[in-house]
């Protein structure tokens, strides 16, 4: 898996816990040291030392995730397919819930979705290596910046077109 942030590729500091056995294994330094725990597994293992990472399906309810928000510093949302946009809405809702840690989109996303993911509140993506081979990090960084303006207020960084128009009007009125 390859983790890509707006600054480029990054070493993954988290290690996915897939079974209760995994949870017991000592954290090596090689593959990341913090555990990334699936929400469904959280009740079955000894709760790791905070802060840890939480891995959620894109169908997870906010109510299920909310109790853990204080003890996790990363939430990875599963993207079963690039064309399944549920994760975007979940990210938006998690941010609204006040989560300020790292939000990660995990799955076979394509570079063309990077800007949208960031605008919905994600900080990074974690894509399979097969995808990263076809769409290397450079493409992600380029596609991220293809659009410099957006209409929707409340999404992404920078002012929306509507806000920029407002600002221009105020400027002109002055």
């Amino acid at each position: 898996m390859t983790v890509i942030t707006p600054e480029g590729e990054r070493r993954d500091a988290y290690r996915l816990i897939e079974t209760t056995e995994d949870a017991k294994a000592p954290a090596g330094n090689a593959a990341g040291s913090k555990p990334l725990v699936p929400l469904a597994l959280l009740g079955e293992i000894e709760t790791p030392e905070a802060p840890f990472g939480l891995f959620v399906e894109n169908t997870a309810e906010i109510a299920e995730i909310a109790p853990h928000l204080g003890s996790v510093d990363l939430i990875a949302i599963a993207f079963p397919a690039f064309s399944d946009g549920r994760g975007f809405s979940l990210a938006k809702r998690l941010r609204r819930e006040g989560f300020t840690g790292t939000l990660r989109a995990k799955g076979p996303l394509i570079a063309d979705q990077f800007a949208d993911a960031l605008a919905c509140g994600f900080d990074e993506v974690d894509i399979p290596d097969t995808m990263a081979n076809r769409q290397p990090v450079q493409q992600w960084l380029e596609m991220k910046d293809t659009m410099s303006v957006h209409y929707q207020t409340g999404f992404g960084e920078g002012k929306s077109i509507l806000q920029q128009r407002m600002a221009a009007r105020e400027e002109a009125a002055r």
Binding site: R134, M143, T146, R165
Partner: peptide, 27 residues
């Protein structure tokens, strides 16, 4: 206005890139 114009122009360029990336196998 200038924003709509920029939006549509950038979208055209973006699609041009997408076509290129389809042809070179990235997509």
């Amino acid at each position: 206005d200038e924003f709509d114009e920029r939006f549509v122009r950038e979208r055209v360029a973006q699609f041009g890139e997408q076509v290129k990336r389809r042809l070179d196998g990235s997509l």
